[in-house]
Design a binder for these strands. Structure first.
Lengths: 229, 229
DNA sequence: CTTCTTAGATTGGTCCGACCACCCGGCCAT
DNA sequence: ATGGCCGGGTGGTCGGACCAATCTAAGAAG
């Protein structure tokens, strides 16, 4: 038996994806009115309830604004938008948004350094062992894909060690953005990576040297990631 | 004209608030099953559609997980949760979550410094003028509430000047968390604030001295904000 | 006894049609 | 020009029905 899995998606999910893509691709700009619920339902050939559900999900994500009696319109982008749709903003319609990408990398570089420092202050030694284990796997990794995944795992583990929950949430979002656009970020890893910085960071964390850990991770972000774009 | 606004809330909004509060207060823990939609509808005396709408909004925020045929359960908190509900996590049931508060302040201090540095690099001079204007208002402010608001405005303006959109989104979320819990954060401002750091930061930004700007804002975060909790 | 099957009950997903609440624009009397 | 009225369009809620996925427990097979 070797059939493809049956992919069953909720109607409302598909509708939501449809509208979301249309918005991030630029078919609708902030302030533009969206078609009425009844109209969309007719267009898609589904019940109005499903359209409503989709529309309300997009509203919860901050993409659209719904006003009773006056219809729905595209919300003011990038000001109050939920970070959940960040992954979809990175490459709308396949075209990478380089300004946004560089913003993300900038922030990540900063957070890398801080995360290293915090981890050095708070980490349990058992967690450091796990971090070292990930690093050894990273050293032996063959494929680009594997290197990419382990590099992210390394950062995730460090975030965990920092003990800051907000940072965890934020890291999850950035990770989601990376995962959904793997091919775009892959180019950063195609020539392999230099794990010298990782080793410096682990050493610094083990010695509880926050300053050195910050330096190591910050250098890594600037040299390995920042230069790639 | 000085009337109070008439507020009319959607049924589904009230339901969503109800369930959200029950969850963040701890009446339901991650993994716990929620009552069935039909049951809730009967309990609240509303139609099932409204309950569904509320439930799906909470799902979009990452608070609950809905499985077709198996009911809804509280999602694994704080791992994949949307940052939109951060404001409600700060003081569930009126009890401040000090661990979370300190996490937020920690992150804010770090971001303050970075924001200052970025602003020094990228800011338009006209924006610096606006920043200075906010600061002069801050110097003359009388009430605690006013000081609090202007201090936030000062930071917001600097975020704008940094030009990083991700930082803007993040800053909006933190600001929302502050606004919804003003009374908790007010204690930080009750003895007035020392605007020395603000002045140092403005001066550094005007001279495009990124290092000095980072130092000034970082110091402010550590001394004025970090010490209060 | 344990394990597997299966039928029924439970729950979320979708649909339909109806009505209410609200917003907007145009028309009219003032 | 102003305010009030009204009608059409829109989102919000309702109730009821059926479909689809899941769970549960009784019964069959070993």
């Amino acid at each position: 038996m070797d059939f493809n899995p049956i992919r069953r998606r909720k109607v409302s999910d598909q509708i939501a994806d449809n509208i979301r893509d249309a918005i991030v691709k630029g078919d609708y700009s902030p302030g533009d009115p969206l078609p009425a619920e009844r109209e969309m339902a007719g267009h898609f050939g589904v019940n109005r309830s499903s359209v409503r559900e989709a529309l309300h999900r997009l509203e919860a994500w901050g993409l659209v604004k719904i006003r009773h009696g006056a219809g729905a319109e595209v919300a003011d982008f990038l000001s109050n938008i939920g970070l959940e749709i960040l992954p979809f903003l990175i490459a709308p319609g396949g075209q990478p948004n380089f300004k946004l990408l560089s913003d993300i990398l900038d922030l990540r570089v900063e957070l890398l350094g801080w995360t290293g420092a915090k981890a050095a202050q708070k980490a349990e030694m058992s967690a450091v062992d796990e971090l070292e284990q990930i690093l050894s796997q990273l050293d032996q990794a063959q494929s680009t894909k594997e290197v990419q995944r382990l590099d992210y795992d390394f950062f995730d583990q460090m975030v965990l060690m920092s003990g800051n929950r907000i940072l965890s949430m934020l890291s999850n979002l950035i990770r989601a953005a990376y995962d959904k656009n793997q091919d775009i970020f892959r180019s950063l890893y195609e020539e392999g990576i230099n794990t010298e910085y990782h080793h410096r960071a682990v050493k610094a964390i083990r010695e509880r040297d926050a300053h050195a850990a910050r330096q190591a991770m910050g250098d890594y972000g600037r040299v390995a990631l920042g230069g790639g774009l």
